[in-house]
Design a protein around this nucleic acid. Structure first.
Length: 573
RNA sequence: GCGCCCGUAGCUCAGCGGAUAGAGCAGGGGACUUCUAAUCCCAAGGCCGCAGGUUCGAAUCCUGCCGGGCGCACCA
């Protein structure tokens, strides 16, 4: 059963009190405060429109709030401080514990969201950019689903385009150099590099490669078969990485660019018929008032190229139309690099104009910044190559294994490996999710894998400690006695715990998972303060039982919160 | 030229209209016969890029600068 947060309940209470006083426009903003449990803001703003003294209004509100379980008082220039009784806090604690969902509601019920994320390219290695998209998208998917939403995952894989002509042609001409029958991702990556180099330096090969593209698009059986082999091999590889990452993307979620091929002529024809797109230099383009190039000339979204081919604008439009029209999406999320922001602005605008994106359907480019190395430059190896995602994950897990083994010598073999995986992958994900997504992100393996401070491990450790404590107590049934007197550290913990559901909805207002990271980190710190100040097992009942209940809810909240970030929370570290 | 993002402690970052701007890391000083010290406590560290404006109140909103990053016609 949904348990409204204390903050939202108080907001209702204060608003009702203000209404009873005739303060019609009063909007109570209740938030946590250093000076009380909560503070209600809004009096100062109301005072101006009413032309009255703020403290007088605040005093009236306080008077109207008079109740047994609430202490309200005027503070400063016109703040209303709100303090709740221990009994109220303990009752709230009991309410959350009584619900398997910790009282979190399902405000997303009935809302369908299509989330487009990960987007690796066939025959190319995944790198840190894909990692960001994958991790952020996965967290958003989990949170949307947890709040009752319907989610369609879409992995818009780069499985089509001119580079496949190059790849297949090179493979045909140089079967040995391309690694023969040895089908693997490293073979494909090497093939890609060699084919690219040949394409750039040998004009005659480039001509043959372009002819091969025509053959592919024309459905030549041998060429199509070669393409399918390459796609299948890459897809197996991606699935392997998703499994390693603990990301819930499957082959079924992969709907690549090629899936929209048949729809592209229709997209172009409809846009042309509606005059949304117009011919320009032989291409079919959509223009925008504000979008201009360096020369001052309008810059288009190119729906169909001069040679008659389609680029990714057409593909994105086809996908969008299908997601709204056939999948009945209420919301479209694109977890893509911030550098694509102009592209999405144009695509969304075009779709609006064409009527494919009705006003009630939102489309959001969930942009993230470039991944930088410790030197502040785009993250590359010392040789200047893109860092392979697999290498990065392997390094993270290896280092985690060393740390885990050092702290927990009894752990060996498969158990050690599993623990190292949970810690290492968790560290990578947390480091990526914890910073606000729009800014460029400094990827520093040293810092992230130090496994100390504000990291995933800190949270995993806090969780494991709680599980250990509860196990030591014999995992008793949870009971809450609402009549005990609370220590400040206990009050702070209950108040923090109560903010979980509100944090999740806050994450969805701007699709910012880092807010959940910040919440969980604060919660872990508050718990640690409680842990240092309030003995649990040694305390006499009913205080002991209440503290065990606090531990229980904290453990559950950390576990749920971490899992919503896609981070495992083992019972032991 | 136009557009988007970013300038907060030495470093990496939170905070984005409310009371005295916070954390982590690094560096300094402490705390383990104690429920996991992968932890905690204390001290130190700030013209919140600059200048105006709006407001009872601005790191937060608006305008203009400065500095950095990234986009802007046939790659995706």
């Amino acid at each position: 059963m949904t348990v409204p947060s204390l903050a939202s309940s108080l907001s209702d209470t204060v608003s009702a009190a203000a209404t009873s006083l005739g303060l019609a426009d009063f909007v109570a903003q209740v938030r946590r405060s250093e000076h009380a449990d909560f503070q209600a803001d809004g009096v100062l703003a109301a005072a101006r429109t009413l032309r009255r003294r703020p403290r007088d209004i605040a005093a009236e509100v306080v008077e109207a709030l008079r109740a047994d379980d609430l202490v309200a008082e005027v503070a400063g220039p016109g703040f209303v401080n709100l303090d709740l009784t221990d009994r109220t806090l303990l009752t709230q604690l009991a309410g959350r514990l009584a619900d398997p969902r910790l009282g979190v509601g399902t405000p997303e019920t009935g809302v369908t969201t299509v989330v487009d994320y990960s987007q690796p390219n066939i025959a190319k290695e995944m790198h840190v950019g894909h990692l960001r998209s994958t991790i952020i998208g996965d967290a958003l998917v989990r949170i949307l689903e947890h709040l009752g939403g319907t989610v369609v995952r879409r992995n818009h894989i780069g499985d089509w385009g001119t580079q496949f002509g190059m790849l297949i042609q090179y493979q045909n001409e140089q079967p040995a150099a391309a690694g023969g029958d040895d089908a693997s991702m490293s073979r494909l990556a090497a093939l890609y590099r060699q084919a690219r180099a040949r394409f750039d330096t040998d004009p005659q090969f480039a001509v043959r490669a372009r002819q091969r593209v025509v053959a592919l698009q024309g459905g030549d059986p041998d060429t199509v078969a070669a393409w399918q082999d390459i796609v299948a091999e890459s897809t197996r590889y991606f699935t392997e990485i998703y499994d390693r990452l603990g990301v819930r993307l499957t082959a079924a979620d992969a709907v690549g660019e090629s899936a929209y091929n048949d729809a592209l002529p229709g997209v172009a024809a409809d846009l042309a018929a509606q005059a949304v797109a117009v011919p320009s230099d032989g291409a079919l383009c959509v223009f925008f008032d504000q979008v201009r190039g360096p020369d001052g000339a309008p810059s288009p979204l190119i729906v169909r190229k001069r040679d008659g081919g389609f680029g990714y604008a057409a593909t994105d439009l086809a996908a969008l139309r299908q997601r709204v029209g056939e999948l009945h999406a209420d919301r479209l999320l694109y977890v893509v690099d911030a550098r694509q922001s102009l592209h999405f602005t144009m695509v969304f605008d075009t779709a609006r104009r064409a009527g494919w994106l009705p006003p009630q359907v939102s489309a959001v480019h969930v942009a993230f910044g470039t991944v930088l190395g410790p030197d502040g430059r785009p993250f590359k190896t010392r040789a200047g190559d893109t860092v392979r995602l697999v290498d990065l994950l392997t390094e993270a897990v290896d280092r985690a294994r060393e740390v885990v083994a050092a702290k927990n010598p009894d752990l060996t073999g498969a158990a050690l490996h599993e623990r190292a995986r949970q810690v290492g992958i968790g560290a990578v994900k947390y480091a990526d999710l914890a910073t606000s997504r729009t800014r460029d992100y400094t990827y520093d393996p040293q810092r992230m894998l130090a496994l100390t401070g504000n990291t995933g491990v800190y949270l995993q450790y806090a969780h494991a400690r709680i599980r250990s404590l509860l196990a030591r107590a014999g995992n008793p049934a949870v009971t809450v006695d609402p009549t005990t007197t609370l220590e400040p550290a206990e009050r702070a913990l209950i108040l923090d715990l109560d903010g979980f559901a509100d944090t999740l909805t806050e994450v969805l207002t701007h699709y910012e998972p880092h807010r959940l990271c910040g919440y969980l980190y604060r919660l872990a710190q508050t718990f640690t303060t409680f842990y240092e100040h309030c003995p649990v097992l040694r305390a006499p009942d009913p205080i002991r039982a209440n503290r065990l209940a606090l531990c229980h809810l904290t453990g559950e909240t950390l576990h749920t919160g971490l899992s919503l970030l896609g981070i495992p929370a083992p019972t032991h570290l």
